Amino acid sequence: MATKSANLYARIEPDVKEKAEKILSTLGIPASSAINMFYKQIILQRGLPFEVKLPSSTPVDISTLSEAAFNEELEKGYADMQAGRTKKAKESFADIRKDYGL
């Protein structure tokens, strides 16, 4: 294993740092190891190891909706279900695992 002797200083939003470090701690991975893994993936992928683009659609944050807007979203979902525009949960989870390499 190569000696880790280079320092990296980065400014990160405090809440982002706290949330990420909490997840890393749960996984048993020190932040420095996660950053090292990220850099190694940049080298292996010859770029960022994920797509950097704007999402084609934004998920609806129901906490920001009025009751009428919330009911409208529910109606859209119900209409999709009635029209057969649904997937089985097993199929949806398989797609998620494929899309995210899980």
Rank of each mutant, 00 (worst) to 15 (best):
F50D: 07
D80K: 12
E21K: 06
I23N: 07
Q82L: 13
L27A: 03
L65W: 00
R97G: 10
E67T: 14
D80I: 04
N71A: 12
D80R: 09
Q45D: 11
A20W: 02
P30S: 03
I29S: 02
K53W: 01
L44Y: 12
K53Q: 08
E18T: 09
S32L: 04
A10L: 14
S63F: 11
I42P: 03
Y100F: 10
K53D: 05
T26H: 12
F93P: 06
S56G: 15
S66N: 01
I12A: 02
A89N: 08
E51S: 07
S32R: 06
Q41Y: 06
L24Q: 00
K98R: 14
L54M: 14
R85A: 10
A31H: 15
G47D: 00
Y78Q: 13
K90C: 06
Y9G: 11
A83T: 02
M37C: 11
L8A: 06
P30G: 01
V16N: 06
G28Q: 00
F50T: 11
Q82E: 13
K19F: 06
L65Q: 02
P55K: 01
A69S: 05
L48N: 05
T3F: 12
E18R: 14
L74S: 04
E51V: 12
R46V: 09
Q41T: 06
S33W: 12
I96E: 06
S56C: 09
Y39T: 14
K90S: 11
D15V: 10
I42E: 01
A10Y: 08
A31G: 08
F50H: 04
S56E: 15
V60W: 07
L27T: 03
Q45Y: 14
L65R: 02
Y78S: 10
I43F: 09
L48G: 04
K40N: 15
E18Q: 11
L24A: 04
R46I: 08
A83I: 02
A6D: 13
E73D: 11
N36W: 11
V60I: 11
